[in-house]
Write a protein that binds this DNA or RNA. Sequence first.
DNA 1: GTCTATAGTGCGATAGAC
DNA 2: GTCTATCGCACTATAGAC
Lengths: 229, 229
Amino acid sequence: MTFDEFKQMAMVSMTEICREIFHEKQTSIKIKKEAVAVKNLVNIFNTALKLSNEKGFQTMSLRDLSRNTGLSMGALYSYFASKEELLEIIQDQGRRLTRKILTRQIDPNSSSDEKLCTAIRTHLYLTEVLHKWFYFSFMETKNLEKKQQKKSVEGELATEQIFIDILKQGNREKLFHVENPILTASVIKSMLQDWYVKRWKYTLRQITVDEYCNFVIDFIKSAIKNKES
Amino acid sequence: MTFDEFKQMAMVSMTEICREIFHEKQTSIKIKKEAVAVKNLVNIFNTALKLSNEKGFQTMSLRDLSRNTGLSMGALYSYFASKEELLEIIQDQGRRLTRKILTRQIDPNSSSDEKLCTAIRTHLYLTEVLHKWFYFSFMETKNLEKKQQKKSVEGELATEQIFIDILKQGNREKLFHVENPILTASVIKSMLQDWYVKRWKYTLRQITVDEYCNFVIDFIKSAIKNKES
DNA sequence: GTCTATAGTGCGATAGAC
DNA sequence: GTCTATCGCACTATAGAC
């Protein structure tokens, strides 16, 4: 699976995400026509992510957002009830997407070796496609209220659990030799995170997602493969 | 070297850092008596780091800072010229400290193997001692003005260069087999970063800095050691 | 050296015209 | 469905009393 194939298969477009949000958030969104609402939502989210990733969500004022979207303050408030809610919607959507795509891509019947590659590749591709979204989620978690923060923590641990399970399966199949699956999953995750957190560095060095992906897979396999087999 | 030994050797106390700042920032700091100034600076920085790490620097108002330090708004402004400058001072100090301690600890004449262990251990210990400071630096970089941001980037690349050099030395000494030193240094750094960025996770799992350190060293060595020797 | 009081700005949010 | 106008509030920063 290449990156381009992934993009098509995953069908994760901003438009699709916004359509989903439109149907779920009928309480906050006062607009009735889907076409109008989705078009503006795409604009609002894209702009909000752009501005927030430049200077932080708190620093971005709704006047900034208004200016950059071309929508008035009043119009913006037809799409969310408060600035706080805008933050929550973005966060929530990102979390659900990760979970959905990750578990969808991994074939439960494949070997631990295959699963590991797929999980790493899928995670990197996903964060590549929605890199603004992930960077935002990562940086703004602490600005959420307690209840929403807890959800973020659970999301993070759930993703990690996927890797822990794969590593344990690898031990059983004698393909891997992993003494500490929890810490191993933890450092794997840190490498995956680096791709979207320190994206500027990889752009600077002209490293593509596939290069990074192949490197990470090789690196991890060298570290954990069972030398006795 | 254990963590406790490091703490004493490094002599990095909040008080010492603040004394240094006091002598350098005579322009902004209007207080003349060292004893008074240092005492209040320790208070201000500790509180600022605490509040910022909970909810972000921008969200922390100077009224918050005033309330939590017990100092009035007027008094605070005797220690820095603007909120922006407070941010810069904290950032700058953290960067310089990293550089100083890292290069001081590594013996230029030791083997690549020893150097790698020392660099990893020192980095982890340092970020453990000053974990609030590093978390702050990491999270607030994008709120700096362009010129300061550039310094941050340079600092990051400089730290990475230390690891790149060690890995290349290891190749020459035939202790390591590292095909891509840049990407390898990059993922090593991401693991080290995880210790202070996702600190809550390791606290939750009751993993000590020494446990994490030993694990990371083993993991990296498994991945890069020269199998032909 | 530290305080209180306040100037001046820009914010989030909303009401009501179109 | 979108706009403009505006309210009330909290912010950074400073001036001047003590």
